[in-house]
């Protein structure tokens, strides 16, 4: 049963992700992204990581994709005509795809994946408390670094995109 559910969710997630890339309409792409994220959240639920699943749906599916949709609709970007691929590109990409397929097939046929590794897994259905404790102890530094990452990103967006005419020294 769980195997079936996993396979369904995996195919669903990857299918929707392909939809993001292949859709000509940006709004449809954003909606595909939403569905793909819901699929990933389902996979998290299967791993008993309920909190992570909820956060993913709230933050990414809820907030981020909604923001994408707003921006896409505000800019009214309907995609438009796409350039056709050149012959060389098609040949090269199909070669690379074939190689990748060959690699995946040989991995499937020959590789023995380790059944279990010594992972000190979180307690089943890890609570908000255990996540919070990890964030403030083991992963304190990465959390701090993310803060500065976001500050840099914000600074970059303001500097690169905002128009400052009239606000500056005018030189």
């Amino acid at each position: 049963m769980s195997g079936l559910l996993f396979n369904f969710l995996a195919v669903f997630t990857v299918g929707c992700a392909a939809g993001v890339v292949l859709n000509r309409n940006s709004v449809a792409s954003a909606l595909c992204l939403l569905l793909s994220l819901v699929g990933v959240a389902g996979l998290f639920v299967q791993l008993d990581a309920f909190l992570l699943a909820v956060l993913l749906v709230f933050v990414y599916a809820g907030a981020v994709v909604a923001l994408f949709l707003f921006i896409v609709m505000l800019l009214d970007a309907q995609g438009g005509e796409r350039k056709k691929f050149k012959g060389a590109t098609i040949v090269a990409s199909s070669l690379a795809g074939l190689l990748l397929l060959l690699g995946v097939c040989s991995l499937q046929a020959h590789a023995q994946l380790p059944a279990t590794v010594g992972v000190a897994a979180l307690p089943v259905g890890a609570t908000l408390r255990s996540y919070a404790e990890l964030l403030f102890t083991t992963y304190l530094l990465p959390v701090e670094v993310v803060g500065f990452l976001l500050l840099t990103a914000m600074l970059g967006v303001i500097v690169l995109s905002k128009k400052f005419e009239g606000l500056e020294d005018g030189k």
Binding site: P142, V145, V146, L149, T152, L155, L160
Partner: peptide
């Protein structure tokens, strides 16, 4: 990964 991204993001800008 995060240190690499902090540096890379700054460099893109």
């Amino acid at each position: 990964f995060l240190a690499l991204e902090l540096a890379s993001l700054s460099l893109y800008v």
